[in-house]
Design a protein around this nucleic acid. Sequence first.
RNA 1: GGUCCCGUAGUUCAAUGGAUAGAAUAGAAGUUUCCUAAACUUUAGAUGCAGGUUCGAUUCCUGCCGGGACCA
Length: 593
Amino acid sequence: MNLDQLLREEITNAFSSLFDVEPPHLQIQPINPEFEGSHTLVCFPLAKISKKNPQETAQLIGEYLNANSKVVSHFNVVKGFLNLSLGHQIWREVFKAIASEEDYGVVKPTGKEIMVEYSSPNTNKPLHLGHLRNNFLGWSVASIYQAIGYEVHKVQIINDRGIHICKSMAAWKTSGNGETPESSGLKGDKLVGKYYVIFDQMQKAQVSDLIAKGRSKEDAEKETSIMKLAIDMLQKWEQKDEEVVSLWRTMNGWVYAGFEATYKQMGVDFDKLYFESETYLLGKEEVLKGVEKGVFFKKEDGSVWVDLTEDGLDQKVLLRSDGTSVYMTQDIGTAILRFRDFPKISRQVYTVGNEQEYHFKVLFLILAKLGYQWAKECYHLSYGMVDLPSGKMKSREGTVVDADDLMQEMIEEAEKQTKELGKIEELKEPEAIELFETIGIGALKFYLLKVDPKKRMMFDPNESIQLQGHTGPFVQYTHARIRAILRKAESMSLKPADKTDDNSLFEPEITLINLLSAYPARLHDAAKDYSPAVIANYAYDLAKAYNHFYQSIPIFSGDDASQLEFRVALSQKVGEVINKAMALLGIRVPERM
RNA sequence: GGUCCCGUAGUUCAAUGGAUAGAAUAGAAGUUUCCUAAACUUUAGAUGCAGGUUCGAUUCCUGCCGGGACCA
């Protein structure tokens, strides 16, 4: 039974019998807590059709419902708002329906398939705070789609080729002395990142030497021995030179091992990896075909362009005059390859920062021009940058927040605060460590996911390690509290029951049932907007409402057994839904904390 | 120069065109014989500026101011 639908039908009936016309789309909204009732019908738009003023219209509909409705118990009118209160019996039935549903809110597989790309790092630098937002977002959106019945393929493209990795290789070769992750005790990605920084330092030193010898800055930057080595390595790599390829393989191997550890700690995973080294030659053929079809055009110097001025954009180069690809060319090829690999997907979602909005607009336009039907279904899940209180993260200024370090800090803070509260006396080592991780990582994920993805956000390290208030641990704590209730109920041999008897409900109980009934709709909203923030805020609202319920009603007092059983059942379901919602964010909820 | 995004309590975030703009933090004041006080209750505090559209605008439109990104 869908409450909203039921109300809609009843009001539609009421309206047409009262005014002899079909009503327009009804605005039924949740109510502000200051007003009595649970649903409100906005009657301003109806006034034109009913030919009465909004207040009268509301009054008439209210009276009609009072006399005829199965669900509305009473009403009140404020200005043009018809506030409806539903009977407690109805609320009990709503809850019964929810409680009896085994996997409440989860949609059975629909046969639809979707691909979600996220992470997609370069292999010359370790992952940082920005990647955390990216990974959490992408992973969560994938989970949300899974929950509404899609088969989801999680992928990333690893930018493992190009001048950047050659720079690390060049620096390692000249000054690395054969250092390895094992010999240095550094994580692989950190080690390779270290040599990327060393390259930069060597380059700077050599440039100033050359400038001192009278070279222009521009020339000097190209002619340092270290830069020449890097460029030489890139060329040799493209010629498949054995030695260079072998070093490239070794160093990328270190990076992957390092990334793997970071992904594990983050709790994200992938179904398939694409490597740029394997896909960067794709796309060129497609572009040439496009020239034949007349979709693209050639300039005198032989370069290939697409003209997007009709779409309000510029001309964009697709192949340079020497025939080499640009990023766009590769992305065209990769997109087509993916649809070949997974012919049943109806859409690709690219989780990439909003600085690439233009790039994806162009990419999707080009794919459409090439005649690919699925192009208009592709979606750039664009998210805002994460700023620090000191401003933007800049790798050159060393203000980048490292992903591993940050996660470690969060876990340590969780441990510290848990110990201060004296909560873990009974917990043994392995459980305690797991709990600190659950709380620390949960706090981080919630912090990054509760904000609308599209918006730029501020990351204040001091505030993020806060475990009170609008945070993940608040929700986790509520779950732990519910589990405690259920343990107690069990010890009292109280079985959860959803009997629909005559007992009236308290306001906090109705609020909870109302929130529970909203879960499927919120899930769909989240999918539609690609926004885990919708889920995060829902989980928070539910937890908040439960705490209020918990503090205002002594669950185990009173001698009416069915009332106690009902409250236990309500608690159990709230716990389940909290668990389910948090799982969509990749946040675990503990049994106790 | 062109395109796009963003301006909400001191701060970080909310608000399908709807009522008295919600939370959280920081501030003030309370609540532990009782199920977990990482909680709860009370209190104070905000829509950049100027117009327009309408019954009604934080939301839509125009201009300006301020912040950011991208394209050449």
